[in-house]
Lab assay of single mutants.
Amino acid sequence: SDEEKKVRDQAKRLGVNTEQLLKWARRQGDEDLVRIVERLLRS
């Protein structure tokens, strides 16, 4: 999905993997991002 591509691009920009991005999203309190990243991790 578009959202998932955006998440992957953001992880690349930050230089982190998906698990690290999830931690980062939780720290930001970004519920939408957390949900998308969790979906990516499960897929």
Results as ranks from 00 to 15, higher is better:
Ser1Pro: 09
Ser1Gln: 09
Ser1Ala: 08
Ser1Val: 09
Ser1His: 09
Asp2Thr: 09
Asp2Leu: 11
Asp2His: 11
Asp2Arg: 10
Asp2Ile: 09
Asp2Val: 10
Glu3Tyr: 12
Glu3Met: 13
Glu3Asp: 12
Glu3Arg: 13
Glu4Tyr: 14
Glu4Cys: 15
Glu4Phe: 13
Glu4Ala: 09
Glu4Met: 12
Lys5Val: 06
Lys5Ile: 06
Lys5Tyr: 06
Lys5Arg: 08
Lys5Pro: 04
Lys6Gly: 04
Lys6Gln: 08
Lys6His: 07
Lys6Thr: 06
Lys6Asn: 05
Val7Pro: 04
Val7Gly: 06
Val7Glu: 03
Val7Gln: 04
Val7Phe: 09
Val7Asp: 04
Arg8Tyr: 13
Arg8Phe: 12
Arg8Ala: 10
Asp9Trp: 10
Asp9Tyr: 09
Asp9Ser: 07
Gln10Trp: 15
Gln10His: 09
Gln10Asn: 05
Ala11Gly: 04
Ala11Lys: 07
Ala11Glu: 05
Ala11Tyr: 09
Ala11Met: 14
Lys12Leu: 10
Lys12His: 06
Lys12Phe: 08
Lys12Asn: 06
Lys12Met: 09
Lys12Gly: 03
Arg13Gln: 04
Arg13Trp: 10
Arg13His: 05
Arg13Lys: 08
Arg13Asp: 02
Arg13Ser: 04
Leu14Pro: 03
Leu14Glu: 02
Leu14Trp: 10
Leu14Ser: 03
Gly15His: 08
Gly15Ile: 07
Gly15Lys: 10
Gly15Met: 06
Gly15Asn: 06
Gly15Gln: 07
Gly15Leu: 09
Gly15Thr: 04
Val16Tyr: 15
Asn17Ala: 09
Asn17Ile: 14
Asn17Thr: 14
Asn17Leu: 14
Thr18Pro: 12
Thr18Lys: 10
Thr18Glu: 07
Glu19Asp: 09
Glu19Leu: 13
Glu19Ser: 08
Glu19Lys: 12
Gln20Asn: 05
Gln20Phe: 10
Gln20Val: 07
Gln20Cys: 14
Gln20Met: 08
Gln20Pro: 01
Gln20His: 04
Leu21Ala: 00
Leu21Asn: 00
Leu21Phe: 05
Leu21Gln: 00
Leu21Val: 01
Leu22Gln: 01
Leu22Ala: 01
Leu22Trp: 05
Lys23Val: 11
Lys23Ser: 11
Lys23Trp: 14
Lys23Glu: 15
Lys23Tyr: 13
Trp24Arg: 02
Trp24Cys: 14
Trp24Pro: 01
Trp24Asn: 01
Trp24Asp: 01
Trp24Leu: 04
Trp24Ala: 01
Trp24Gln: 01
Ala25Met: 09
Ala25Thr: 01
Ala25His: 01
Ala25Val: 07
Arg26Tyr: 09
Arg26Gln: 10
Arg27Phe: 11
Arg27Lys: 13
Arg27Trp: 13
Arg27Ile: 13
Arg27Leu: 14
Gln28Asn: 08
Gln28Ile: 14
Gln28Glu: 05
Gln28Ser: 10
Gln28Thr: 12
Gln28Tyr: 14
Gln28Pro: 01
Gly29Asp: 02
Gly29Phe: 14
Gly29Tyr: 13
Asp30His: 12
Asp30Val: 14
Asp30Tyr: 15
Asp30Lys: 09
Asp30Met: 14
Glu31Met: 13
Glu31Asn: 09
Glu31Gly: 05
Glu31Leu: 13
Glu31Tyr: 13
Glu31Cys: 15
Glu31His: 10
Asp32His: 11
Asp32Asn: 13
Asp32Pro: 02
Asp32Trp: 14
Leu33Ala: 01
Leu33Pro: 00
Leu33Ser: 00
Leu33Phe: 05
Leu33Trp: 03
Leu33His: 00
Leu33Ile: 03
Val34Asp: 01
Val34Gln: 02
Arg35Ser: 04
Arg35Asn: 04
Arg35Tyr: 05
Arg35Ile: 04
Ile36Trp: 11
Ile36Leu: 12
Ile36Asp: 01
Val37Tyr: 02
Val37Gln: 00
Val37Trp: 02
Val37Leu: 15
Glu38Leu: 14
Glu38Val: 08
Arg39Met: 08
Arg39Thr: 04
Arg39Phe: 10
Arg39His: 07
Leu40Asp: 00
Leu40Asn: 00
Leu40Ser: 01
Leu40Lys: 01
Leu40Trp: 12
Leu40Val: 05
Leu41Met: 05
Leu41Val: 03
Leu41Lys: 01
Leu41Gly: 01
Leu41Thr: 01
Leu41Gln: 01
Leu41Asp: 00
Arg42Met: 10
Arg42Ala: 08
Arg42Trp: 10
Arg42Tyr: 11
Ser43Lys: 12
Ser43Phe: 13
Ser43Gln: 12
Ser43His: 11
Ser43Trp: 13
